Simulated scan of single mutants.
Amino acid sequence: MVGFFRRYWSVFLPLAAALVLTVTWGRALNPTVAVLVGVWLIGAVLSSVHHAETVAHRVGEPFGSLILAVAVTIIEVGLIVTLMLSSGDKAASLARDTVFAAVMITCNGIFGLSLLVGALRRRVAVFNAEGTGGALATVATLATLSLVLPTFTTSEPGPVFSASQLIFAAVASLVLYGVFVMVQTVRHPDDFLPVEGSAAAAEDEHADPPTRRESLRSLGLLLVALIGVVGLAKVESPNIESGVAAVGLPPSAVGVVIAMLVLLPETIAAVRTARRDRVQISLNLALGSAMASIGLTIPAIALASIWIEGPLMLGLGATQMVLLALTVVVGALTVVPGRATLLQGCVHLVLFSAFVFLAVSP
């Protein structure tokens, strides 16, 4: 039995998570059941990382690093829109809080962990400054257009866009994201590959990819696992909300916890990739996830706003804008040399810690 599970765990866990999601969806969970659901959530995360790496190995880079980021984001967007449609005015700031949390988690948490792990392994983490710098510039532009400007526009009272402004932000987000994907995969893919001559580049050249059948099976199971991750995170959210309220934390802490759960697959995949001296791929995954989170979420909620009642608060507060600005500045200084030590990794992780601390203690 143990041998069977070791061989087929990556097939069993996604299907079991989907079954648990079907049984628990829309139901109130007692503490014992909530713990069991959390166990299956972790299992779905681990299996999603395994299948994402299998598919990425088949299609190669830089296409591979897009798969997990885009798949998770699409499902995450569906979750956000569903919650906004069902919660009404209570979810006015849900999209803002979720997207900002995703940016901080990816651009500081995952980014910092990748640099730290890479630097601890090789003393210096090496990556392509051209591609990483372009990705960071795109993230900074998307975040400013979608999350900062609403605080300063005057067409509508409060940190909200007018209808025309929201449409512009949605179109601009889609255009920027589409252009970036074209540059990464067609025009300049070499800027997003491991540095020539590194151990990672040699590994890419000699490792045998999985068969077409294995890749298609992994792709299907990846989608099932990701649905399980995001769906079970949604199932757990009432328990998270009650726990947060019980200890006196602000409601924004709920969004941070849920975002961390949803982004667990990217985090684990990035760390494992960095341990194999593939820091560039880890950074692609981190910044690509941030970019997809903004570039796909804003257009989706712009469309959903037709049916959503009440205001759609997108503008960040002063503390959040300071953290975002500091993240962009520090990220630029980290990226420009094309190499980083554990110092840069620790700086980003401290910024991530500051974000989490201020989210629970504003």
Rank of each mutant, 00 (worst) to 15 (best):
G3I: 10
F4Y: 09
F4N: 07
W9K: 07
S10H: 15
V11P: 01
V11R: 13
A17F: 03
A18E: 09
L19W: 03
W25I: 04
R27C: 09
V35S: 00
L36W: 11
G38I: 06
L41T: 06
A44I: 09
V45W: 05
H50D: 12
H57D: 09
G60D: 14
P62W: 01
P62H: 02
S65L: 01
V70C: 13
A71G: 00
V72H: 00
G78D: 08
L85P: 14
S86Q: 07
S93W: 08
L94K: 03
T106C: 15
L115V: 10
L115S: 03
A129Y: 13
G134D: 03
G134K: 00
A135Q: 09
V139D: 01
L149M: 14
T153R: 06
T154L: 10
A172S: 08
L176R: 02
V186I: 14
A201I: 05
A202L: 14
D204E: 15
H206E: 11
R212T: 14
S215G: 08
G220C: 10
G220V: 08
A225M: 04
V230Q: 08
K234S: 12
V235D: 04
V235F: 00
P238G: 15
S252T: 12
M260S: 05
V262C: 05
E266R: 07
E266A: 10
T267D: 04
V279H: 03
V279A: 02
I281N: 03
L287D: 03
A290R: 02
I294K: 04
L296Q: 09
E309F: 12
P311R: 13
G317F: 15
G317D: 11
A325N: 09
A332G: 12
V335K: 05
A340H: 04
L343G: 05
G345I: 06
C346G: 14
L349P: 02
F355N: 05
